[in-house]
């Protein structure tokens, strides 16, 4: 098992190199170092000399991938690609183009992202499972049909409408919570309340429906019939047997997203003005800050791979028949 995990982690290295190469290529087709200098130096009165100086100062005056003028290994290492990629593997992200430490920024922004994403995830999981259980309990009745229809309608609405509508009703008309912003400490509660509720609501359609099908599949199995024949109450069957067994596919299905919670949500964070990693990413795309975008891509990929490994582990934990080799 440990050997397997080590192998998986080693496999991550070529994947990450591939990720780096791809983002690097995409970004430099779009964004020549000249462009980056121009964005950083502002609009008014920028001289060509200033652009040259900036490139020199920030290490963008080298060739991109292959340095023909250097000798030996330097041909590959004295390039922008090597300079800007190598340090990533030890999670040293360097400085953004406006001179701020990216690692530091990521650490400070993780908190706000998590304070939205984690409760959304947990509350979401609980309420989706509850809702799905209810529908299962009342399967093939009017309630079930109404529930499923509701689910389909809810998942057919664009996420943007949940946010726009939520802000309009709850904050503007009813004055329940501040429209946007983020605060420290306990006071923070009022800021994160609405984003969390909206996050939970926007996922309820798709997830509940999916869980319902899992429960239904489980409830048709023989052991459930046996239990019922033994006189176990419907609720008992549902909670003691169905829920317990259905949690395996549900949990293993959601484990992969847990590490990605750190990345935050792009839409929610920018609409609600939450200073998390999601809005950091959007800002970086808009400002064309290559260093930040690369760091975020790298981080996202690492977390995704971590999620995959966690999924593997969770399989072995919940189902002893599965062996990792």
């Amino acid at each position: 098992m440990i050997a397997y995990l080590i192998r998986r982690m080693l496999y991550a290295i070529p994947v990450l190199i591939g990720v780096n190469l791809l983002t690097f290529a995409l970004f430099f087709v779009v964004n020549t170092p000249d462009d980056m200098a121009r964005v950083q130096l502002g609009i008014k009165r920028v001289t060509p000399e200033a652009i040259e100086q900036w490139k020199q100062r920030h290490g963008y005056d080298k060739p991109l991938l292959y340095n023909a003028r250097a000798a030996g290994m330097d041909r590959f290492t004295d390039t922008i690609f090597f300079d800007k990629s190598a340090s990533m593997f030890v999670f040293d992200f360097g400085y953004s183009d406006d001179g701020r430490s990216i690692s530091r920024e990521i650490v400070t922004r993780m908190g706000p992202s998590l304070s939205i994403a984690l409760p959304t995830f947990l509350i979401g999981l609980v309420s989706y499972v509850t809702f799905a259980l209810l529908m299962t309990l009342f399967r093939a009745t009017a309630l079930d049909i109404v529930g499923v229809t509701l689910c389909v309608v809810l998942m057919s609405i664009s996420g943007l409408f949940y946010i726009i509508g939520g802000q309009f009703l709850v904050s503007k008309l009813w004055h329940w919570v501040p429209i946007s912003g983020y605060g420290g400490g306990f006071d923070n509660f009022r800021f994160v309340l609405l984003p969390i509720v909206i996050g939970v609501a926007s996922g309820i359609g798709a997830s509940s429906r999916w869980y319902r099908t899992i429960f239904l599949e489980e409830i048709g199995k023989d052991y459930v019939r046996t239990a019922r024949a033994k006189g176990v109450s419907e609720l008992g069957v549902l909670f003691r047997h169905v829920l317990k067994n259905a949690m395996i596919p549900i949990l293993t299905g959601v484990v992969v997203v847990i590490p990605l919670l750190f990345m935050g949500s792009l839409l929610t964070e920018s609409f609600f003005g939450i200073p998390g990693l999601g809005s950091y990413t959007i800002d970086a795309i808009n400002a064309q800050d290559f260093s930040v975008v690369r760091a975020m891509v790298f981080l996202g990929s690492v977390l995704y791979i971590a999620g995959l490994i966690l999924t593997d582990i969770s399989y072995t934990l919940v189902d002893p028949r599965v062996r990792l080799s």
């Binding site: 994947v15 791809l22 983002t23 792009l266 891509v297 996202g300 995704y304």
Partner: peptide
Amino acid sequence: TVLSSIPSVLL
């Protein structure tokens, strides 16, 4: 794996 591990919005 490479393609799917990049956050799709960024890609």
